[in-house]
Computed example of a mutant assay.
Amino acid sequence: MKVLHLISGGDTGGAKTHIISLMRQLNKLIDAKVICFIEDTFYQEAVGAGINIEVFQQKKRTDMSVISRLITEINREGYDIIHCHGARANFIAMFLKYRIKKPMITTIHSDYKLDFKDNFYKRIVYTPINSIALKRFDYYIAISDTFKKMLVDRGFKEEKIFTVYNGIDLESKIHYIGKEDFLNRYDINGEDKIIVGIIARIDLVKDHETFIKAAYKVLQNREDIIFLIAGTGNDEKRIKSLVKEMDIENHVYFLGFVDDQYSFFNAIDINVLTSISESFPYVILEGSRLKKMTISTNVGGISRLIKDGYNGYLIDVGDSDALAEKLDYLMENKDMIKTMGENLLNSVEKNFSSRNMAEEHCKIYDKIIQHRR
């Protein structure tokens, strides 16, 4: 079986981790290759991971010269399935589909109607284009059952949608610097303090405002806690202003983009995610490798992993009071932080390895090929 994966190449965060984790394991089971359209850190990390990847460089998004190159590649190599990831790849696939006779599948990594929520131009232009492109695919992989339901509710055929939860590579070695060295990088004194962190792009869908409001409430009664925010984004200026207005700048630190995420996870005690929409985020899986318990909004498929009170806590979207209450409780019961972190890693090892994820993909590919035959 030969499968060609198409992805932008400018991807960061969960999409990047997903592809690299998946391809590492897929290549042990089938013949799989990635083609991306931007040469960036994604390409470099994929090469470093030993993944079969090539760049078909686009001068800009509307550069369709890659179509003929892809047709030549697909026909020459005899791929059985074309598998896309993300808006750019979906757009290209829309033009590619009727010029090749191969089944095409795309993974729904996020709510595509919210992908460009913070950028007016992209929201007006790219969201409708991606919505149209998605309708052209033969099959879909949803990252969670809730995302499958979302697609069905929007008119996609249920029998064409598969569900595969994200998995993480538990075999590869992770690299990180010591906690003190990481904090010194940002001139932060974390001595005798519990460190709460959130690592996500700073845009509306990640709802950092709830994180900040909870931090404010906790800091009214204690100062033995600090909050780290890793990431950048369109909502950054507003969130920084909010921190300043609340006069908690001495306890909330903006780190900017952090490219060594495991150093971040190693430095924090509690991992937080306040998103209003997620599929099955890698920030929880990555944090679990260093036994970091998570407090997350109950969105997407997160409840499949986080069991409230066992390996973390779930809160409602926008509920800063609940987040503050959980943090206050953990500050008074610090042994629970370690215990739940250990439990989280155990849960991931049992159910959410990248090996399991790759095997599920192979089953789907096989079903598609058998159906076509």
Score class of each variant (00 low, 15 high):
residue 140 Y to T: 05
residue 168 I to M: 01
residue 247 D to G: 07
residue 142 A to H: 00
residue 10 G to F: 07
residue 221 N to S: 14
residue 9 G to Q: 13
residue 33 K to V: 00
residue 138 D to G: 08
residue 155 G to W: 02
residue 286 E to W: 01
residue 151 L to P: 05
residue 209 E to D: 11
residue 270 I to Q: 10
residue 150 M to E: 08
residue 318 G to I: 01
residue 370 Q to G: 15
residue 105 I to C: 10
residue 23 M to G: 08
residue 367 K to N: 11
residue 15 A to V: 14
residue 220 Q to S: 12
residue 242 L to N: 10
residue 272 V to L: 06
residue 228 L to H: 00
residue 152 V to K: 02
residue 57 Q to V: 11
residue 322 A to P: 00
residue 125 V to D: 08
residue 342 E to Q: 13
residue 2 K to D: 03
residue 358 A to K: 05
residue 292 K to A: 02
residue 279 S to W: 08
residue 320 S to K: 07
residue 340 M to C: 00
residue 118 D to M: 08
residue 327 L to E: 09
residue 312 G to R: 03
residue 198 I to F: 06
residue 359 E to F: 13
residue 221 N to L: 12
residue 87 A to Y: 07
residue 137 F to H: 05
residue 12 T to S: 10
residue 270 I to M: 02
residue 300 G to W: 05
residue 257 F to H: 15
residue 102 K to G: 02
residue 371 H to A: 15
residue 157 K to G: 11
residue 297 T to G: 11
residue 363 K to Y: 13
residue 184 N to C: 15
residue 265 F to P: 03
residue 217 K to Y: 08
residue 131 S to H: 10
residue 279 S to H: 10
residue 215 A to E: 08
residue 190 G to V: 15
residue 273 L to E: 04
residue 151 L to V: 00
residue 22 L to F: 06
residue 253 Y to T: 11
residue 280 F to A: 00
residue 196 V to N: 05
residue 180 E to P: 13
residue 81 I to V: 05
residue 138 D to Y: 07
residue 371 H to G: 15
residue 206 K to I: 02
residue 232 T to Y: 13
residue 264 F to G: 05
residue 241 S to R: 15
residue 274 T to V: 05
residue 371 H to L: 15
residue 231 G to P: 04
residue 87 A to T: 11
residue 363 K to M: 11
residue 88 R to W: 14
residue 278 E to D: 08
residue 132 I to M: 12
residue 185 R to I: 04
residue 236 E to V: 05
residue 161 I to D: 00
residue 214 A to L: 09
residue 219 L to A: 01
residue 259 D to Q: 07
residue 215 A to L: 12
residue 358 A to M: 00
